[in-house]
Amino acid sequence: MTKYGMVIDLGSCLGCGACIAACDFENQTPWEEGKRRTHVPEFIFGEYPNVERLFVPRLCMHCEDPPCVAVCPTGASYKNEDGVVLVRYDMCIGCKYCVVACPYNARYVDERKHAIDKCTFCYNNRVSQGREPACVESCVGGARIFGDLEDPNSEVYKLIHSGEAVPLRADLGTHPKVRYIFRRKKREGD
Protein backbone atom coordinates (compact mmCIF):
# COMPACT_ATOMS: atom_id res chain seq x y z
CA MET A 1 0.00 0.00 0.00
CA THR A 2 1.17 3.47 -0.85
CA LYS A 3 0.14 6.57 1.03
CA TYR A 4 1.36 9.68 -0.69
CA GLY A 5 2.28 12.73 1.30
CA MET A 6 4.35 15.88 1.17
CA VAL A 7 6.63 17.70 3.54
CA ILE A 8 7.23 21.42 3.03
CA ASP A 9 10.36 22.86 4.58
CA LEU A 10 9.49 26.49 5.21
CA GLY A 11 13.13 27.37 5.82
CA SER A 12 13.87 26.50 2.19
CA CYS A 13 10.92 28.30 0.57
CA LEU A 14 12.04 31.47 -1.21
CA GLY A 15 8.51 32.56 -2.10
CA CYS A 16 9.50 32.59 -5.79
CA GLY A 17 6.19 31.13 -6.95
CA ALA A 18 7.74 28.63 -9.39
CA CYS A 19 5.51 25.93 -7.88
CA ILE A 20 2.42 28.04 -8.62
CA ALA A 21 3.46 28.59 -12.24
CA ALA A 22 4.37 24.94 -12.75
CA CYS A 23 1.06 23.79 -11.27
CA ASP A 24 -0.97 26.28 -13.30
CA PHE A 25 0.77 25.13 -16.47
CA GLU A 26 0.63 21.42 -15.71
CA ASN A 27 -2.98 21.38 -14.55
CA GLN A 28 -4.34 24.26 -16.64
CA THR A 29 -5.96 25.90 -13.63
CA PRO A 30 -8.28 28.90 -14.11
CA TRP A 31 -5.52 31.11 -12.66
CA GLU A 32 -6.79 34.18 -14.51
CA GLU A 33 -9.77 34.11 -12.10
CA GLY A 34 -7.38 33.79 -9.16
CA LYS A 35 -8.30 30.10 -8.77
CA ARG A 36 -5.26 27.94 -8.22
CA ARG A 37 -4.38 24.59 -6.72
CA THR A 38 -1.45 25.96 -4.77
CA HIS A 39 -0.76 29.33 -3.19
CA VAL A 40 2.28 30.77 -1.43
CA PRO A 41 1.06 33.39 1.05
CA GLU A 42 3.54 35.40 3.06
CA PHE A 43 3.35 35.84 6.82
CA ILE A 44 5.19 38.28 9.00
CA PHE A 45 4.86 37.81 12.72
CA GLY A 46 6.55 38.74 15.96
CA GLU A 47 7.62 42.18 17.10
CA TYR A 48 10.82 44.06 16.44
CA PRO A 49 13.55 42.93 16.92
CA ASN A 50 12.21 39.36 16.89
CA VAL A 51 10.38 39.43 13.60
CA GLU A 52 9.98 36.41 11.41
CA ARG A 53 8.94 36.26 7.78
CA LEU A 54 7.59 33.02 6.38
CA PHE A 55 6.22 31.84 3.07
CA VAL A 56 3.76 29.05 3.73
CA PRO A 57 3.00 27.18 0.51
CA ARG A 58 -0.53 25.86 0.61
CA LEU A 59 -2.30 23.12 -1.29
CA CYS A 60 -4.83 20.38 -0.61
CA MET A 61 -3.69 18.63 2.56
CA HIS A 62 -4.98 15.26 1.31
CA CYS A 63 -6.35 14.61 4.77
CA GLU A 64 -6.72 11.08 6.09
CA ASP A 65 -10.16 12.14 7.39
CA PRO A 66 -11.12 14.66 4.73
CA PRO A 67 -14.10 16.85 5.68
CA CYS A 68 -14.75 17.49 1.97
CA VAL A 69 -15.32 13.77 1.34
CA ALA A 70 -17.52 13.46 4.43
CA VAL A 71 -19.92 16.17 3.23
CA CYS A 72 -20.06 15.30 -0.48
CA PRO A 73 -23.56 13.92 -1.19
CA THR A 74 -22.78 12.15 -4.47
CA GLY A 75 -19.41 10.66 -3.58
CA ALA A 76 -17.77 12.85 -6.24
CA SER A 77 -15.08 13.73 -3.70
CA TYR A 78 -13.23 10.64 -2.63
CA LYS A 79 -9.93 9.36 -1.30
CA ASN A 80 -8.29 6.87 -3.64
CA GLU A 81 -6.36 3.71 -2.75
CA ASP A 82 -3.13 5.70 -2.48
CA GLY A 83 -4.62 8.18 -0.01
CA VAL A 84 -4.98 10.99 -2.56
CA VAL A 85 -8.17 13.07 -2.34
CA LEU A 86 -9.67 13.47 -5.82
CA VAL A 87 -12.88 14.65 -7.51
CA ARG A 88 -14.96 12.65 -9.99
CA TYR A 89 -15.93 15.62 -12.14
CA ASP A 90 -18.86 13.84 -13.82
CA MET A 91 -20.39 13.02 -10.42
CA CYS A 92 -19.93 16.53 -9.01
CA ILE A 93 -23.17 18.55 -8.99
CA GLY A 94 -21.36 21.68 -7.81
CA CYS A 95 -23.21 22.16 -4.52
CA LYS A 96 -20.02 23.68 -3.09
CA TYR A 97 -20.56 22.05 0.32
CA CYS A 98 -17.01 20.68 0.15
CA VAL A 99 -15.60 24.13 -0.61
CA VAL A 100 -17.29 25.49 2.51
CA ALA A 101 -16.30 22.44 4.60
CA CYS A 102 -12.60 22.46 3.72
CA PRO A 103 -10.77 24.17 6.57
CA TYR A 104 -7.71 24.72 4.36
CA ASN A 105 -9.52 26.62 1.61
CA ALA A 106 -8.06 24.21 -0.92
CA ARG A 107 -11.03 23.97 -3.29
CA TYR A 108 -12.54 26.19 -5.92
CA VAL A 109 -15.31 26.15 -8.53
CA ASP A 110 -14.00 25.53 -12.01
CA GLU A 111 -16.55 27.26 -14.21
CA ARG A 112 -15.24 25.47 -17.30
CA LYS A 113 -15.82 22.03 -15.80
CA HIS A 114 -18.97 23.13 -13.91
CA ALA A 115 -17.45 21.22 -11.03
CA ILE A 116 -15.22 21.63 -8.00
CA ASP A 117 -11.50 21.30 -8.53
CA LYS A 118 -8.45 21.03 -6.33
CA CYS A 119 -4.88 19.79 -6.07
CA THR A 120 -4.55 16.14 -7.11
CA PHE A 121 -0.87 15.72 -6.18
CA CYS A 122 -0.65 15.45 -10.03
CA TYR A 123 -1.78 11.89 -9.41
CA ASN A 124 -3.08 10.95 -12.84
CA ASN A 125 -0.79 13.05 -14.98
CA ARG A 126 2.56 12.51 -13.22
CA VAL A 127 2.66 10.47 -10.00
CA SER A 128 1.00 7.37 -11.50
CA GLN A 129 3.75 7.47 -14.15
CA GLY A 130 6.50 7.55 -11.57
CA ARG A 131 7.14 11.30 -11.73
CA GLU A 132 6.90 13.85 -8.94
CA PRO A 133 4.12 16.48 -8.76
CA ALA A 134 4.86 19.60 -10.83
CA CYS A 135 5.24 21.82 -7.76
CA VAL A 136 7.82 19.47 -6.26
CA GLU A 137 9.85 19.13 -9.43
CA SER A 138 9.92 22.88 -10.03
CA CYS A 139 10.77 23.98 -6.47
CA VAL A 140 13.97 25.98 -6.64
CA GLY A 141 14.85 25.68 -2.97
CA GLY A 142 13.90 22.02 -2.69
CA ALA A 143 11.34 22.97 -0.09
CA ARG A 144 8.72 20.47 -1.24
CA ILE A 145 9.49 16.83 -0.58
CA PHE A 146 7.09 14.20 -1.92
CA GLY A 147 6.97 10.51 -1.18
CA ASP A 148 5.33 7.48 0.35
CA LEU A 149 4.40 7.96 4.00
CA GLU A 150 4.35 4.19 4.51
CA ASP A 151 7.87 3.58 3.20
CA PRO A 152 10.30 3.79 6.14
CA ASN A 153 13.15 4.59 3.74
CA SER A 154 11.45 7.64 2.24
CA GLU A 155 12.49 11.11 3.31
CA VAL A 156 8.92 12.16 4.05
CA TYR A 157 8.51 9.16 6.37
CA LYS A 158 11.69 10.07 8.28
CA LEU A 159 10.79 13.76 8.55
CA ILE A 160 7.30 13.01 9.85
CA HIS A 161 8.34 10.26 12.23
CA SER A 162 11.15 12.37 13.70
CA GLY A 163 8.43 14.84 14.71
CA GLU A 164 10.08 17.56 12.65
CA ALA A 165 7.28 17.90 10.12
CA VAL A 166 3.94 18.88 11.64
CA PRO A 167 0.45 19.39 10.21
CA LEU A 168 -1.43 22.69 9.93
CA ARG A 169 -4.49 22.89 12.18
CA ALA A 170 -3.92 19.51 13.82
CA ASP A 171 -6.66 20.57 16.25
CA LEU A 172 -9.29 19.88 13.58
CA GLY A 173 -8.55 16.15 13.57
CA THR A 174 -8.35 15.89 9.78
CA HIS A 175 -4.89 14.23 9.82
CA PRO A 176 -3.37 16.06 6.86
CA LYS A 177 -0.78 14.25 4.74
CA VAL A 178 0.94 17.52 3.91
CA ARG A 179 3.24 18.48 6.75
CA TYR A 180 5.39 21.52 7.48
CA ILE A 181 8.83 22.00 8.92
CA PHE A 182 8.82 25.31 10.72
CA ARG A 183 12.35 25.11 12.13
CA ARG A 184 14.75 22.56 10.80
CA LYS A 185 16.81 20.76 13.43
CA LYS A 186 20.53 21.41 13.27
CA ARG A 187 22.32 18.50 11.69
CA GLU A 188 25.95 17.51 11.69
CA GLY A 189 27.86 19.73 9.27
CA ASP A 190 25.22 22.50 9.39
Binding site: A70, G75, M91, G94, H114
Partner: peptide, 27 residues
Protein backbone atom coordinates in the same frame (compact mmCIF):
# COMPACT_ATOMS: atom_id res chain seq x y z
CA UNK B 1 -26.89 27.66 -6.82
CA UNK B 2 -25.67 24.31 -8.19
CA UNK B 3 -23.07 24.24 -10.93
CA UNK B 4 -24.94 21.36 -12.55
CA UNK B 5 -28.61 21.64 -11.55
CA UNK B 6 -29.51 19.10 -14.23
CA UNK B 7 -27.57 16.46 -12.28
CA UNK B 8 -29.34 17.05 -8.96
CA UNK B 9 -30.77 13.53 -9.18
CA UNK B 10 -27.27 12.20 -8.34
CA UNK B 11 -27.94 13.22 -4.72
CA UNK B 12 -30.31 10.24 -4.59
CA UNK B 13 -28.96 7.80 -7.16
CA UNK B 14 -25.21 8.33 -7.42
CA UNK B 15 -23.33 5.01 -7.55
CA UNK B 16 -21.05 6.44 -4.86
CA UNK B 17 -23.89 7.88 -2.78
CA UNK B 18 -22.87 9.21 0.63
CA UNK B 19 -25.81 8.69 3.02
CA UNK B 20 -23.99 10.59 5.79
CA UNK B 21 -23.87 13.83 3.81
CA UNK B 22 -26.17 16.48 5.24
CA UNK B 23 -27.19 17.36 1.68
CA UNK B 24 -28.45 13.81 1.13
CA UNK B 25 -30.17 13.78 4.53
CA UNK B 26 -31.65 17.23 3.88
CA UNK B 27 -32.87 16.28 0.41
Amino acid sequence: DLEKPEKFYLVFVSPHLNPHSMIFIGS
